[in-house]
Amino acid sequence: MNKIGLALRELYRAEEELADEYVKVGERLAAEHDIWYECKRFAEECHLHADAIRPVAARYEEQLAPADDSEVGETTTAALRHKLSELLGRRPESGLLLLRSLRQLYLQAQEVSFHWLIAGQLAQATRDQELLTLVDELHRETLTQIKWLKTQAKVASPQALVVGSRS
């Protein structure tokens, strides 16, 4: 068993799980138009990351399945969640749901970022230039996702939690 390969498998798994979460949140919050759109794009980005990790992991004897991005498009459950979101989209509780969803995404994105950090360390220690280049490019994209989640949370939290709390 190759420990570097295992670390890359962890990274791959975290990216794939984050992609799934982006898809779910995007559909659940489809009435928040910017969230819906960006979540879809980030889900695709995570799958691309996962796919980029596969050939490197293979070098460390870790065989990973192709990224499963089948859920990114229009599926029946997606359409259902989307519709539900539009129906519930006029209730103030949507603000709380948004915050909770952003928190979950933020935590998972941090996990991904942590694994990239580890991957970067391994790349340097093993003088693996290919992996190092990958980390340089893709970790930056994860960090941008985190910045985006923070940006959204900063806008959403006062409106969700402060309005009406005086009554």
Binding site: E32, P92, T151, K154, V155, Q159
Partner: peptide, 19 residues
């Protein structure tokens, strides 16, 4: 100044949500 001033589409979204 905790976040950027709210943009128009977001103002209408908050109105839609009732906040």
């Amino acid at each position: 100044h905790w976040a950027p001033p709210t943009h128009a589409m977001q103002i209408f979204r908050f109105a839609e949500l009732g906040s």
